[in-house]
Computed example of a mutant assay.
Amino acid sequence: MSAPVSGTVFADVIGQGQAVELLQASLETQRLAPAYLFCGPHGVGRRRTALRFLEAVLSGRVQGGNLAQRRRLEEGNHPDLLVVEPTYSSQGRLLTAAEADGQGLKKRGLPQLRLEQVRDVGRFLARHPLQGQRSCALLDGVERLNEAAANALLKTLEEPGGGLLVLLAPSRSHVLATILSRCHVVNFRALCPAAMQQVLGGLERPEGADPPELLALAAGSPGQLLHHRQQWQALESDQRELLEQPLETPHQALTLARNIAERLDLEQQLWLIGWWQQHLWRGGYGEPSLIGTRIRDLERLHRQLRGYVQPRLAWEVTLLSGLAQR
């Protein structure tokens, strides 16, 4: 027999008492909406809470459970749960971020939730469940819906059938109003320092304390702190040295621009812009008005890269502009 899970299904969700209380009440009264939207920062427990909620929906009970079923849900192997994430398109195949990293894919753009993925969700929710109480789907990264996929999702929400759909997004502003109006919204919040420590306490830490820029970027999200640690550690030592020192000459600026554009993929470059903005605020390089101008330049660079401007040229213009302002 499978080992039992003690307490409620939400026992390992930390720092999200209000969301858990709302979901637990819905489960206990069996007043479930056909679609839920979990809104909050990345890495604060939205996905874990969604999986625990769906575990209770599929099993029909809030208390207890078993580890084998929980493992199947977390691995996406339960026959009545479909988990969908943003994907990259490569040689006619759709790859999640983890699959793309595993295959060493050079990521030229950002992942998307695509039309064919959303259509799969609609078909899945319309089918009869095989083991659980109903068919369920978890759609992660709703902010990455392209236009065609958003229209298809709206159609699914208008005709939900007997299934249950949970959407994850960073905030309400990332979701179309027509989709938002058809979902029961559950809000998640950043964690306090004590809750952060509780979540991260059992995990291996890098040598030394986290750089202040990483803590600021995490903004109360344990998952984001782990992500930022990984991004920072992925930079090579010479890249870190170039980044941490103020640029002095046009040659340094052009060298750094080439280095970033050739050695970092688009997601890493976008992450680096956020890190650099925090670094400028904390480093105090120049007058406050000059720092503000440079941070706005980096924000413009962020928009340009997301708009598929040629990365090396965009970095060169931004870095040389920063030198000229000194």
Results as ranks from 00 to 15, higher is better:
A56C: 05
G307K: 06
L23C: 05
L266Y: 06
R294V: 00
Y285A: 12
R70M: 14
T249R: 11
Q278K: 09
V13E: 05
E316I: 10
D238H: 15
G292A: 10
Y285W: 15
D120V: 01
V199I: 06
E204W: 10
H184E: 04
G43N: 09
H251G: 12
P206Q: 13
E316V: 11
R47Q: 14
L95A: 09
V5C: 14
G92W: 03
P211V: 12
A137P: 03
V166H: 06
L176M: 14
L153R: 04
Q197A: 15
G162C: 04
P193V: 02
R134Q: 03
V20I: 12
W232F: 15
R303S: 14
D80V: 08
H302V: 01
Q198Y: 09
H184C: 07
Q112R: 15
T318K: 01
L266N: 04
S289Y: 10
E55M: 08
Q63H: 12
V83Q: 09
Q304L: 13
N66F: 11
Q24G: 11
S59R: 15
L154W: 09
H302E: 09
C39F: 04
H174L: 10
L23T: 03
E299C: 03
A11Q: 13
Q224E: 15
G284E: 05
R134E: 00
R119A: 03
R172T: 13
D140S: 14
L115R: 04
A50Y: 14
L225H: 13
L67N: 08
G202I: 13
E213W: 12
L67C: 09
L73H: 12
E116Q: 02
G122T: 03
V118Q: 06
N187L: 03
G161K: 07
L313D: 05
E213F: 08
R108D: 10
A68W: 06
D210R: 10
E267S: 12
S6D: 15
I14V: 15
L214K: 02
D210C: 11
P41Y: 00
L225K: 13
P288W: 02
G132N: 06
G274H: 14
Q278W: 04
G161H: 08
E147N: 07
L82I: 00
T293P: 00
R240V: 12
L95Q: 08
Q63S: 14
D140V: 15
E75F: 05
E248H: 06
L164I: 13
R282V: 01
A98P: 03
G274C: 11
Q269R: 14
P211Y: 12
L82H: 00
E287S: 07
D297G: 04
G7Q: 11
Q304K: 10
Q224C: 13
H251E: 15
S135G: 07
A126Y: 06
G122F: 01
L256R: 07
Q103S: 02
T49L: 12
R71Q: 14
E244R: 14
L51G: 08
L323F: 05
L301Q: 04
V20M: 08
P246K: 01
A218L: 07
L191F: 08
M1H: 11
R144M: 01
W281D: 11
A177Q: 10
E241Y: 06
A137T: 02
T8L: 10
E85C: 03
L37R: 02
